[in-house]
Design a protein around this nucleic acid. Sequence first.
RNA 1: GCACCAUUAGCUCAGCUGGUAGAGCAACUGACUCUUAAUCAGUAGGUCUCAGGUUCGAAUCCUGAAUGGUGUACCA
Length: 491
Amino acid sequence: MESAGAPTDQRSVRIEKMNTLRDAGILPYAERFEKTHMLAEAKVLADGTKPVRAAGRVIAVRGFGKLTFCHLLDFSGTMQFALQKNKLSGQFELFMKTVDMGDFVGIEGEIITTRTGEKTIDVSSWTFLAKSLRPLPEKFHGLTDQELVYRRRYLDLITSPEHMDRFKKRTQIIRTIRQFLDKNDFMEIDTPVLANKACGALAKPFITHHNALDIDVFLRIAPETYLKRAIAGGFERVYEFARCFRNEGLDASHLPDFTLLEYYCAYWNYEDNMNFTEQLIKHLLATVSGGLTLTYGGTQVSFDGAWPRISFRDLILKDCGIDINTCATKEDLLAQIKAKGIAFEGDVDIAHAGRGNLVDLLYKKVSRPALINPVFVIHHPLDLSPLARKNDANPQVVDRFQLVVNGWEIVNAYSELVDPLDQAQRFEEQARARAHGDLEAMEVDNDFLLCMEYGMPPISGWGMGIDRVVALLTNAPNLRDVVLFPLMRPE
RNA sequence: GCACCAUUAGCUCAGCUGGUAGAGCAACUGACUCUUAAUCAGUAGGUCUCAGGUUCGAAUCCUGAAUGGUGUACCA
């Protein structure tokens, strides 16, 4: 019977239950609990096994008067447990009076199989471990509001096992890559996140301030130039899972902070690197997905067989009939594009794009979307690649490749530029573009140039967007779905 | 950046051309020893995202804002 002043909202009711526990001499937040089994392990034990001690969150309660079935959730999964009044006496009533869905409990009991064939822990004693003051989301639908899924990921993880599995797979993917690199004598090293120059990629950086030094510093947009400094210092194979930051638009395929894996190998060129890339990705697929094909959003992608290698020039020639090698200037190329009747979207800034950027736009328009199965696109225009080595036969292009899958650039790699005089020239060209308003162009990095003047061996370097690879391998529609706690506006 | 859509109970959702707000789960009271989205009977729960406007009357129509989603353009 509800008296006039009794609490009605669920939080107050739960706080009341904590008082009931305290009155019974029980702390609502216990100090520790010793487990013998994860639930996934307990589930495969033979009937009669005891004692089995497990702990987790109560996610379902079905009471039958003197018998109650519950489901417990731990990191390994869920399992049913049963409480019988005639075996527990007062402990049975205490459970019914004080335990809500969402609370943590520890249980000890014996493995049985119920009439409906479900492995169950028949509880002989239980321990209150932690109170939840708020009701969990409804059990059948779980959380469907995308905003709540991102803002309260912990609830999403509790109620959506398939989302929890996706994050477990993320860790497995990273672990698999790390083990593969380690086995091939690469060393994992750490390079600065805070730096004086935002170098290594074409992107707008986040700027912050260091108080003691009283200088503005940049959050890194790529680890590239520091990893190359490490090679100059004598490392021969290095890698880093580098959290990087770019102050640009965010959408389903871009995050403000993301994980970029880069590795550098002395004495390799970009072709050695392509061979290694193919091994690495195939190993990853086989280990994590159990095969060389996957389905992403209804699209079948096959990683089987040798992956084609095709140059920027050949690809564009094949897809729209324009030979970029015969277009020496931006104007020539623009005339060809007009002649072929190819139109870019309205707000693409063609007027300010250089020849290289225009080639890139053309590629993204006519070629890239059709590349579903893995393809190595090679020999990019020089002015798109300020840190890449010129091709010896054709200095208008660089020894670079991108691995394109499902229309996404998954990997970007090249034979590194190690000639300091050439590098200085490239930086100057970037600085000119910057002066003309291109905020993504690089600044001159004299410290990096100095390092290069002391000498670097031949190097091939490589970068891969981990979040995108995880999204591809877990069929996630949005990069936020593979990041536990994505940045949101404050509520 | 632009366009479109969404916002109603803790969660998942109804609510028609404007007429004082509904369900399921969760909660509360009670029944029940094999259920598993348990069932049955009863009870309680609302600043309908926010601010204006139109109207006798607004969850509903109009304007603006906030937050989120999707598409689109650029950057991985």
